[in-house]
């Protein structure tokens, strides 16, 4: 059982091809909750496949409502950190795609200096990463931040 290679990590379009600004721009055109959540659902569905072999306790982010898995790899060439995330809940997956747009393929200092909450606030999705929601998203963001701070 080995981690996917760096190429697989780099093929994740979120945070590379699709930047958070693209998501924010799209989001602005969506009128009501149905359109906004349909968009998040679509993001969730299009998240790159997460290797089944990596769905192990060590990669499990604890949350009460839904399960989240996270793996990462650093490119030794430029120090950028690459992430892959999965969840059994589609909306959590979609929100994870938003997080990837913000934090994936960034350097450690970029990650630690990014205010994820402010972006979720702007998208009116802040409730999903508030401490009251037990969906693992908040723990996931904290985990990525701690990975970055250890570099």
């Amino acid at each position: 059982m080995s981690l996917p290679n760096l190429e697989t990590f780099k093929n994740n379009p979120y945070g590379t091809e699709t930047a958070i600004d693209d998501v924010l721009e799209n989001f602005e055109f969506l009128d009501d909750w149905e359109e906004r959540y349909s968009y998040i659902i679509d993001l969730g569905k299009s998240l790159p496949e997460f290797p089944e072999s990596e769905k192990i306790e060590a990669n499990y982010v604890h949350g009460c409502q839904s399960q989240v898995w996270l793996i990462h790899m650093q490119d030794p060439a430029d120090g950028k950190i690459y992430l892959m995330i999965d969840s059994d809940a589609i909306i959590v997956k979609g929100l994870a795609a938003v997080v990837l747009c913000i934090l994936n393929a960034k350097t450690a200092s970029e990650i630690t200096n990014t205010d994820v909450e402010a972006i979720f606030e702007q998208m009116d999705l802040i409730r999903h990463i508030s401490p009251t929601r037990g969906n693992g998203l908040r723990s996931m963001i904290e985990l990525v931040k701690s990975i970055a701070s250890q570099q």
Partner: peptide, 12 residues
């Protein structure tokens, strides 16, 4: 449909 998805979308 995950129960958590149902909960989120009903809350909306």
């Amino acid at each position: 449909l995950h129960p958590s998805d149902l909960g989120t979308l009903l809350d909306q």
